[in-house]
Design a protein around this nucleic acid. Structure first.
Lengths: 146, 146
DNA sequence: TTTGCTGCAAAGGCTTTGCACGGAT
DNA sequence: ATCCGTGCAAAGCCTTTGCAGCAAA
């Protein structure tokens, strides 16, 4: 599955197909979480969604994110000393995590895909997912530091 | 740096070189954390260390693990819905995380090393570390499930 | 109408912090 | 003798849960 803009109709459909009611709160949260490319925290999703739906609660955000995670529509990234961040790109890719600015850049790489498949086979492992992070400093921060 | 058994003498030396006092608690915690291969949680390290030093506190375990993490002697692995786990193998390797039994198996792979270096170069990233996880079910659990 | 969802507040779990005593240098 | 580290308890922070009212099907 590659990056794709999910329309509200598709979101509603997906929710209903999985036995969830398509409430306005859920739709708003899904819309933001599934379209964002900058790995937001639950708190930031809450802040953003509240701009349109001022009564939404953080609990609902967490509950909805849990649904999305369980159904493989977003991936939860836990990093030390920071809140969980959610990645709407669930395909096999690399996260370039900048320890300076906190930015996370997605990076596609064919070798990475082959490597994961080969390792899985070699270890006789049944793979359901993966997470490939590289930590360091992004180009922008390197330039700024100079 | 590959897997290596650190002697107490080396642990004491390393602590002092970095400006830390070599207390008996720290030595015990370091000994266990650096020698363990099964990615223990802070709580488990605490339980184990308490067998020898019944008065040690969880706070001290956390503080010592923080020192080890900051100096790159262990790596902290955060997974959703679970306590942080600590990996004494800080070299570039793959974590095969079994979602069934919770076991984490380290796996060395040359292709992975090359891939990380190549991606880092391509993205003009300055790398300080990485984390490569594959999630799924280990051989043992597959066999047991059958 | 029925069922499940929301929002609130409170609880929970892991981790960190403040402080006075005690041990390492 | 000095200073850092320890242990305890309390606080902190993110996340989850319980529940009564409310909205979706």
């Amino acid at each position: 599955m590659s990056r794709s803009q999910k329309s509200d109709a598709l979101i509603i459909d997906t929710l209903r197909k999985n036995g969830y009611k398509a409430t306005t709160q859920r739709i708003a949260i899904c819309r933001f979480a599934l379209h964002s490319r900058d790995h937001p925290t639950a708190q930031r999703i809450y802040n953003e969604v509240r701009k349109m739906h001022p009564t939404v609660s953080l609990a609902t955000v967490y509950k909805t994110l849990q649904i999305l995670t369980e159904h493989g529509l977003v991936q939860e990234l836990d990093l030390p000393q920071s809140q969980a961040r959610f990645d709407s790109y669930v395909g096999l890719h690399i996260n370039l995590v900048c320890m300076q600015c906190g930015n996370i850049q997605d990076f596609d790489d064919k070798t990475a895909q082959e490597m994961v498949e080969s390792v899985t086979a070699k270890a006789q492992f049944t793979r359901t997912g993966q997470r490939l992070d590289i930590y360091g400093m992004c180009k922008t921060c390197q330039d700024r530091t100079k």
